[in-house]
Nucleic acid binder design. Structure first.
Lengths: 193, 193
DNA sequence: ATTATTTCTTGCCAAATGGCAAGAAGCTTT
DNA sequence: AAAGCTTCTTGCCATTTGGCAAGAAATAAT
């Protein structure tokens, strides 16, 4: 039940004393899942907010032809959730699936709401977490507009080399907005250089 | 100094009594800008959170070749801000420019922080605003992955027909992640059908 | 009213990406 | 070791999108 990684992560989002961070971490409970587990299913309401201490998770949905589209890849340490589903307590339209065995820490919606209410640092932390995620998504969006598939790929492999050791190229391709065939060709061209 | 539209908008984000919404609106001050005004400039820290009551604003940045890339188009009524710059009080890397004359209501960073602290409804409202924006961006991202440029265009014209009356096609094209040339051809094909 | 200026469209061709099917390579399972 | 499965690669060709330059149309400036 060692929460050191959670505590450390909380402090990277919002710097605060060890005591404070330790206090915030107290409400989190452990959940360990095996590879290929569905952490949150399409149509269900997100009831827990998860901190991913170790492992890889992806979120995905389906396009109109029924093909699976990877919307996000989560690499520890980070928080994993559909914030809209969680904060509005509405059904999500995504699936969250473990790509490896994972070690998670979770807190229920009610506990989060209660802590937001009673602990100013916790709500400040929550807001920064949201803002950080929003900013990351904006950067990804910008890449989709202005970068070629090859540039998106090389940027991604530079910033997240670990993901390539643990996630299939098909999933990465979909996350980058291209087909696995195209990604394979892009990789070939890069090797040639 | 009629804040009815602001009050109404606050209530669509988080339903609450007229009195409460009225109270939340009190701290906002009026700002009117002409077309082509820079509301927030690249390199500056966002000091104000803006509610756009009337008009159109876009955010943009530049790609590596110096071409201007529209990252977002804001159509009243909505809030306009770089949340990362605002909440972390860091320089933004985007420009926010009025595309028409605009009527804005703003609140300073200090006032927002103070109100988050003292008014529970205000922070709940702030969180929902963030979550809604995050969700919209996620939907847009999903469109970039799974839809063709033509589909993104037809979806956009259906959901935001008013924008086409007020914003040039070059800006819309950039927002959709294509060139103005391609958008022009897509429009021609649609007319043919 | 005339001249600039910007926006939008079009033609021609190039580059990027996708679809399909087959094969190769790497795993599991038995 | 063999069979089965999934992942990754490749060839062939189609489709989508872009780049450039020129012209048409719409707006703004004088």
């Amino acid at each position: 039940m060692n929460k050191d990684n959670l505590i450390k992560y909380i402090q990277t989002v919002l710097s605060m004393s060890n005591e404070k961070a330790n206090h915030l971490s107290e409400k989190f409970k452990l959940k360990e899942v095996l590879k290929n587990d569905l952490v949150l299913k399409d149509g269900k309401v997100s009831r827990q907010n998860y901190f991913l201490e170790a492992g890889y998770i992806r979120s995905f949905t389906f396009d109109t032809d029924g093909n699976d589209v990877t919307t996000n890849i989560f690499s520890a340490p980070c928080f994993v959730n559909d914030f809209l589903s969680f904060f509005k307590q509405r059904p999500t339209d995504e699936n969250f699936e473990s790509l490896t065995d994972c070690r998670l820490w979770y807190m229920s919606f009610e506990e989060v709401q209660e802590s937001f209410h009673s602990i100013p640092e916790f709500r400040e932390f929550g807001r920064l977490l949201l803002v950080n995620n929003y900013s990351l998504l904006k950067q990804r969006m910008l890449g989709m507009i202005k970068d070629t598939a090859e540039t998106r790929y090389t940027n991604f492999i530079e910033t997240h080399p670990d993901i390539f050791q643990n996630v299939s190229l098909k999933i990465i391709a979909s996350y980058l907005g291209i087909t696995d065939t195209s990604l394979s060709r892009i990789r070939r061209e890069i090797v040639k250089k």
